[in-house]
Design a binder for these strands. Structure first.
Lengths: 341, 341
DNA sequence: CTTAATTTCGAAAACGTTTTCGTTTTTATT
DNA sequence: AATAAAAACGAAAACGTTTTCGAAATTAAG
């Protein structure tokens, strides 16, 4: 029942705790003979160093914190997967927390991570985070921090992002090239940078074409949800009878739009072309399959851990660390909700 | 830069570390005056107890481990959500690990959790776990453990499950009641209990009807994947021209089947009725929407944590703990891939 | 004003590990 | 055989907290 400690091993072997510890760590001032004795006994007793003691001494937990807006999102699930995979291969465990897109929760979760003494934090800002005092607090404590996806541009730290504006530009431009003349955008409240940038990309594409930008074609989805898309689709059709293209901020919204449009017997893509964003699996099983922008969640998780890990190492060895901003490539995935070129 | 400790507070106030500690914990042998002084200073300095020291002393980490076969599954994502939510409201953090349905990884992850000294473990067995020595090892160390969803019946511990057999029975029976005469089942290799039970439910339903059980109608999906369903669908149609019902082990398989069947221009549900399992969101956006069995992932996660928490508490207070096996209700969700009654 | 009772506090050990630095033992050199 | 050098080990402190138990200070009782 009582756990096996260095003391137990030392006693059993008639040596000191210090020697046992050093033997296990391969110190050069321990003879090969005793090393073997210690190693063998440790193996036999299935000795596992007490991580609490190790952490107390080293002030390292070998644990990082990951804050996710919503776990049950295809994209974020992939991010988790990426982070966990890379973390594990570097000996780190990951505490996963969910902000539920609430600023208060986000702050609370960050507090919990502080309490647990994580070695670093990975965070994607909640859609409702405007004040970043809590983030700055983490930074001021010297805890390595990396932002991914939903970042805050003015914060001085490493970041992993995609080029939302460019991706949105490409998506919208594709709609234009396939003949769409009246393209709506369903966006979100102007908050996370991603939302702004995707709108900006949409607008830039319109401005670069010979289509006139029409403000009334930009709709706001409050919750970025399926239902939002479902409802807005109906409204859109009322407002603009001759609508022929839609670029939605997310795949869930796009899916909601598709459902409603099908109910209204609007032909897709013949009458209206539709593009979503993120490449959720579900966009490939609807009828028609929805064209979208691939957002590399797994890679983003990996890269984010990578940057964090480097920063942790740098801090540990007292070296200075250059913040990096990594931009991952996206890809326009053309399926059947858009017309062929 | 250096963290604020009890010592710092004590020094500042000219009292002992012991007094500071007791003041913060509300011990009765500290005067209200000093209590206030300590509390105020702690607040001012934003004191956070060092969790390493606390853990070392109490041998509690206030962290639990959660092992998931695949994070990027709607159902398991919901489970994670449930676990994290309930854990947080009880002051526990959750380290999430993924087994990727590999026995070796599962064992490795369990080792990592041991190394991190988690207070308890929640695990859903990988599809390829036959030997449960690693699980027994955890139990033998006295670490609280709860199995959820993919359980191992013979292991003596708390479990949270659904009644797979009953759910499968109801689903299959519904196919029969709506007039299906030749119903196929796409199952998996005979390993996790869930797979066996769903097949058993299917078979029981057939046996209880006046349909003859036909072994050739049972197909094996190796990876329980979309592609499996997609491929098997074609094979099935070759083998049985007059097939009129399919009960698939999972929603992904069912979705693959649906895609292929639509390509083959099979009318659903007119010619063939289809039921999946789990109620992934994606089944509600296909055309037709797929009927399925709702599997309460969030609730399962909550309940699993709940049981684990009780066991941790019991262990802590030296009380004995009665293993519980909780069965959560499922629900047949009828959509458009099945005929009306 | 003494003694007893009560309140308030602090010294110290313990949790298990790591690492510095000094001590002992062994081997090599004259 | 004496000394120097190298090899092998151990004592002890430190990480920061909690808690027991005894000591000191205060108040109450006689």
């Amino acid at each position: 029942m009582p756990n096996v400690t260095l003391k137990k091993i030392a006693d059993e072997l008639g040596i000191s705790i210090a020697t046992a510890s050093k033997a296990l760590k391969g110190y050069p001032d321990i003879s090969d003979a005793t090393k073997k004795r210690v190693l063998d006994l440790a193996e036999k007793l299935n000795y596992r160093p007490n991580s609490f003691a190790q952490s107390l001494r080293s002030s390292e937990s070998q644990i990082i914190g990951l804050i996710i807006p919503e776990i049950t999102h295809d994209f974020f699930a992939k991010v988790i997967h990426g982070v966990i995979t890379c973390a594990k291969s570097n000996g780190y465990a990951v505490i996963v927390l969910q902000s539920g897109d609430s600023y208060e929760k986000e702050k609370e979760q960050l507090g919990m991570l502080l309490d647990k003494n994580v070695d670093g934090v990975l965070i994607s800002l909640s859609n409702n985070t405007k004040d970043i005092g809590h983030i700055k607090e983490i930074k001021s404590k010297g805890i390595p921090l990396v932002l991914y996806d939903r970042i805050y541009k003015l914060l001085d730290c490493s970041k992993v992002v995609i080029n939302d504006k460019k991706a949105a530009y490409n998506a919208t431009t594709h709609l234009i090239h396939t003949g769409c003349k009246k393209i709506a955008h369903i966006g979100g409240n102007l908050d996370p940078q991603t939302t702004i940038d995707r709108f900006l990309g949409y607008k830039a594409a319109i401005d670069d074409s010979d289509i006139e930008y029409d403000k009334s074609l930009v709709y706001i989805a409050k919750n970025l949800s399926f239902d939002d898309g479902y409802q807005i689709a109906e409204q859109m059709m009322k407002d603009h009878k001759d609508l022929d293209g839609i670029f939605a901020l997310t795949d869930t919204i796009a899916t909601g739009v598709l459902m409603k449009l099908k109910e209204m017997e609007v032909q897709i893509p013949e009458q209206i072309s539709l593009i979503g964003f993120s490449n959720w699996f579900l966009t490939s099983v609807t009828t028609p399959k929805i064209s979208t922008v691939n957002q590399p969640g797994f890679e983003m998780g990996c890269k984010a851990f990578d940057l964090l890990f480097k920063e942790i190492q740098a801090k540990k060895h007292g070296m200075l660390f250059e913040k990096e901003i990594v931009e991952l490539p996206t890809e326009l995935i053309l399926r059947n909700s858009t017309k062929p070129l």
